[in-house]
Every structure is written in structure tokens, then in C-alpha cells.
Design a protein around this nucleic acid. Structure first.
Lengths: 206, 206
DNA sequence: ACACATACCAACCGTATGGTATGTTTTCCA
DNA sequence: TGGAAAACATACCATACGGTTGGTATGTGT
């Protein structure tokens, strides 16, 4: 049996390996501190291959933010928190899931596009916007359940589902910042407990 | 009258100008993307002067985090939110104050040590720890009022004053991340509204 | 008047950086 | 089975980077 001849544009080739290396290294060292040579070395690829696939380092930044958006979309779509029939239970299960996946090294559970946006927001608008699409695209997936829970429970308050969805991301991102500053993942989990309590308050859950 | 001969080590000299330049430029471009030459140019100082005052670029990073801690401590100590006699009112006034100072350009209201910690947590432990001291030193100033409000109102819940103080910082830092990713300061203010609502819920304020 | 320390400056150094020019190899498809 | 095109590799370039060197000007304590 021949090994795969027509190589898929998404699996195992230099471009894909470079994106994986970028995802891992940029999360640990930041974008500016990550050199093109670093990425080539990690992906076992030459510089010629890098600039064949990406017009510039900034273009790699945009591509890796898009790559992050795709992979996290798939990851969360396949996650178990969608199982409960009750929409509010799904929202709370989401928060619990986000807390549960805060494990291991800090660079392994923190958010690429959060750190990337924080670093380049003023210097690389293209990368910043790609990060924004990833973050706010994810919040959109939460809005449906929050809004359903809101109608379901007859909550009439002065907040919107979109706003609460964004707030969940703010708490998660802020937890990551504190975890990094304090060098302790528990700091990220702690804020998710407060978020859980807040949502229960909003929906009058005891 | 002679102009001051023995120059104070804290005012107007090269070191102080470099710290101010570092505070402003690093907030906008990030630490790694800010070159020593950038700082010298902005502070109108030569490279010789830079390395006279700071042993390395990393040492400047530690110094600017400490500088940030000092100036923000003074700034918040002088802020008006300490006025209310009721401790809970002071806590809510703090949140309102944090919301009120989110004005103008993103680089002007966001947190130096939050971005700095996020960028260098894995590569420069010294800078990271200086950022941690700044952030958690600030949370400590909130704990007193939160704990007083807790006792005052007889709240017996499963959270601590320290934990809630840290959560306020997580929400603030996360709001900054979203504001940068979405290029809109309103995103930072929005999360502070949720934080305000959360605290009112916790203390049973209508 | 002397020794000494601090603050600062201009010029320089080795290296690492993002990026390019020019191949060579592999894959696809007519 | 050609031949074009995509996918890589090698060698190189100009520059910008963090950091060093040797020096001067000025104040300071004795």
C-alpha cells in the first residue's frame, strides 16, 4: 500500500507543522520574541519553505490566529458541555468545562489569540482583527444557550446574552493574566468559580 | 537662586525619563518589540546612559514594573473612591472608578504589568514576579474594604475577600484583553458592569 | 587641592533578525 | 510520459539588535 501521495493541504506538510510550532512557541514566548528561525527549527523546515507558505512573519501571525480559531471551534463543538437538555445547564457546564481544562503547564491551557491580541493590537491590525474574530466568534457560540436560558427562565434584566457571553471571555482571559502574573493556574480557576456563582445569581439558581 | 545642584535621583533625570518612555512605549508595542534604541530616542538619552542606569533590557523591565507599582499605588491612594463611610459603598465606588478611568486611547488606560506579565511570564521570571507584586499588591488594598463589608453585612458565603479582590483584577485585565482584541474600550467597561452586578448580588443589594 | 564617584556620551562590535535570490525536488494532470 | 507548477532547500544580504568600550563633565567629601 503506497503511503499517501496527494498530500492534503492541512495535514503533515510544512505549512501545518509551522502553524503548530507557532501556536506552541508564541504561546510561551510571545510573538515578537519568537523568531522565524525558531519556528523553522521547531517545525524542521527551512526558511525558504517558511516564506513559500507565508508572505511575512505578520502573515504567519494572521494564519496562526485563524488556525487557532478553526481548531478551537472544532474542540469546543466536540466538548461534552452541550449534552444537558436544559440551556442554563449547558451554560454552567461550559464554565465548568473551561475550569476543568485548566491543567498542566500555563502555556498549555492559556489562549493564543488573547496573548497575541494583547501584544500586537497597536502594531499589527491584521493580526489583532484575526484574534478578535477568533474570540468573538467563540462568544457567538455561547449566545444561543444563554438567550435560550434567559427566555426559558423568564429573566428580564438589564443585560444581554451577547454581553454576558463576552463577560465570560473577559473572566477567562483575565484569569489567564493572573495565572501568568502569579505563576499559578489556580488563579485562573478561582475566577471561574466567581463566574459560575454570578451566572447562578443571574438566573436565580440556589 | 541657583538651580538644584544635587539632582534628585527620582526627578527629570535620564533614568526617570527612560522609565516614563518605557511605560508608554511598552504599553503600546509590547516589551520584546520595544528596542533599547526606541527608549533612548523617546527619552532623548544615549545608549550609554541607558546601560549606566540599567544593567540590561530585562533589568529595565523589572524597574518599569516596580515604577508602575509605585505610581499606581499613589494614584489609587489619592482616588476619590475611599470617601464613602460604608465599606461596601467603597468597594462599589472602586469598580465605578475603574470603569470611569477607561477613556481615550487603549494604550492610555490599559495595564502595563498585565500585558508585560502576559508576554514574559515564561521567559523572564524576574519581570514576571515584579508584575505579580504590582498586581497582587493592588488587590491587597481592596481586601480590607471587602472584608469589612462582609462582616458589616453578615455575609457568610463560600468565597473569601482575597478571592473576590483577585476576581476584580481578573475582570479588569480580561476587559482590557477584549478591548484590545475588539479595538473598542466599551468592551472593557461592559465587564465592569457585570462585576458591579455580581458584587451587588453577593451583598444582597437591590 | 585632591581623590573619587556619578552621570552621561559617541563610536563601535558581534550576532541574530526578517527577508530574498536562486536553485532542486516532488506532485499533479493532460 | 511530458511539463508546468507547487513544494521545498541553500546560500546569502542589509539591517537592527542588545551590549561594550573608553572617555568627559560635574559634583562631593576631605
Amino acid at each position: 500500500m503506497p503511503r499517501p501521495t496527494k498530500q492534503s493541504p492541512e495535514r503533515g506538510n510544512a505549512r501545518h507543522r509551522l502553524l503548530e510550532a507557532a501556536r506552541d512557541i508564541i504561546r510561551a514566548k510571545g510573538f515578537a520574541a519568537t523568531s522565524v528561525d525558531d519556528l523553522c527549527r521547531a517545525a524542521d523546515v527551512t526558511k525558504g519553505a517558511f516564506f513559500h507558505h507565508f508572505a511575512s512573519k505578520d502573515a504567519l501571525g494572521v494564519a496562526v490566529a485563524d488556525f487557532w480559531a478553526e481548531t478551537t471551534t472544532d474542540f469546543f463543538a466536540a466538548a461534552p458541555y452541550h449534552a444537558p437538555p436544559d440551556p442554563l445547564a449547558r451554560v454552567l457546564a461550559y464554565v465548568a468545562f473551561r475550569k476543568a481544562i485548566i491543567l498542566g503547564e500555563i502555556a498549555e491551557f492559556t489562549c493564543l489569540v488573547g496573548t497575541l491580541a494583547q501584544e500586537v493590537y497597536a502594531t499589527a491590525p491584521d493580526i489583532r482583527d484575526a484574534c478578535g474574530r477568533s474570540i468573538f466568534g467563540h462568544t457567538d457560540t455561547l449566545v444561543v444557550d444563554i438567550e435560550a436560558a434567559r427566555i426559558d427562565r423568564g429573566i428580564a434584566d438589564d443585560w444581554t446574552a451577547e454581553s454576558l457571553a463576552r463577560h465570560t471571555q473577559a473572566v477567562i482571559q483575565g484569569g489567564f493574566v493572573l495565572a501568568k502574573a502569579g505563576n499559578d493556574p489556580a488563579l485562573a480557576r478561582e475566577s471561574l468559580d466567581h463566574l459560575d456563582r454570578y451566572i447562578r445569581h443571574l438566573f436565580h439558581v440556589t
